[in-house]
Design a protein around this nucleic acid. Structure first.
Length: 359
DNA sequence: CATCCGTGGGC
DNA sequence: TGCCCAAGGAT
């Protein structure tokens, strides 16, 4: 299989792409550092996440954990609090695990070979190539969604980019055409092109620095590529979420250490069979919490959409004096609540409480 | 390989 | 409004 057209001029492509990137690249915070550790952080945060979303998180994060050792020694709860709102929270825990391994096994120096850096937690094929090329100038592929979209158009690749197997086609292609003089600008140029010019819906081909060598542009097929199959629809779940209060404190529980929103905190939740509120909620809760939950009052109702499922949440306040609670729960003051890392649905509940003046 | 794992913005 | 999307990785 030959992905690269025989007449493709790699040298000219490299020059056009790199010159354009040098001229037009955005001034982003992680482009102002040469520290492999900080570049690594940016690449993790940018996974499946928009640049505009990442910028403030990245700035706060490197200010809080300026060096690799600062992050290696951080409390997980502090780390997750910094990550709150970014999503895909396992990224944060995997990043710290990887950083700890670099601190212990590599004397604090981020390794510069694909084999070694790929062995770190949370570092896959893309991130490995990105850090290697950007931080160390190593000519390695860094194939993300942008690169697959851009190259599928330029090289007229018709394979389904939703299939894992397809990535290798593009990795091979990049290794054939990558600049060995400036692999950093080459890889970043491909991604920047995908972000600014060769966009999914309305590519700005007349502004493209490499349209002369683009197969899709020549054939007027830029809107047909890439080929990408659709994901299946998500499932729906219904929960009652409870702000159970006693005195000046509210009851919180820590989620399991694996799975959805692992190790994040939440108001205790009860799964409901259907969309209808169950009768006798207080009694059900009182059994659940080994004590009396009373004066339950609904204060909000909302939907929270995750990538693969949807929560329909009814939010309640209740009184829970004298409850005996399991070890993964604890009573916290309003001040302590603000230090706990919580995800989207809990933030919506907190907002509902705030509007009532309850927290 | 298919599924799991968040969030907010754009159309 | 519903769907797609964004610098993916682990299992």
């Amino acid at each position: 299989m030959e992905a690269i057209p025989i007449e493709f001029d790699s040298k000219k492509f490299q020059e056009d792409l790199i010159s354009w990137f040098a001229e037009e690249k955005r001034d982003l915070p992680w482009r102002r550092t040469a520290d492999p550790y900080q570049i690594w952080i940016s690449e993790i945060m940018l996974q499946q996440t928009r640049v505009d979303t990442v910028i403030p998180y990245y700035k706060r994060f490197v200010e809080k954990f300026p060096t690799l050792n600062d992050l290696a020694n951080a409390e997980e709860e502090v780390l997750l609090k910094q990550w709150e709102g970014l999503g895909y929270y396992s990224r944060a825990r995997n990043l710290q695990a990887g950083v700890k391994e670099v601190a212990e096994k590599y004397n604090g120096i981020v390794p510069s070979t694909r084999k070694e850096i790929s062995s770190l937690k949370g570092v896959g094929p893309y991130t490995a190539g990105a850090v290697l090329s950007i931080a160390y100038g190593v000519p390695e592929h860094a194939v993300d969604g942008n690169v697959m979209r851009v190259l599928s158009r330029i090289l007229l690749v018709e394979e389904d980019i939703a299939k894992p197997k397809t990535r290798k086609t593009f990795e091979d292609a990049v290794m054939e055409i990558i600049s060995h003089e400036n692999p950093s600008f080459f890889n970043q140029g491909l991604m920047e092109l995908g972000a600014l010019i060769c966009t999914p819906t309305s590519p700005k081909c007349l502004l493209c620095p490499v349209r002369e060598q683009c197969g899709a542009f020549h054939e007027g097929r830029q809107h047909e590529l890439p080929v990408k199959t659709k994901a299946k629809k998500s499932k729906e779940l219904h929960y009652a979420m409870l702000a159970i209060r006693s005195g000046e404190t509210v009851l919180m529980e820590k989620r399991p250490e694996s799975g959805l929103l692992a190790n994040m905190w939440q108001f205790p939740m009860v799964e409901m069979g259907g969309a209808v509120l169950p009768e006798g909620l207080d009694e059900h809760l009182s059994e659940n919490f080994k004590g009396t939950v009373e004066n339950t009052e609904q204060i909000t109702s909302f939907k929270h959409v995750f990538s693969h499922l949807t929560w329909n949440v009814d939010g309640f306040i209740a009184q829970g004096d004298g409850l005996t609670v399991p070890s993964h729960m604890k009573w916290v003051t309003a001040e302590e609540l603000e230090l706990l890392p919580v995800a989207g649905p809990v933030r919506k509940m907190k907002e509902a409480l705030r509007q009532r003046g309850d927290v």
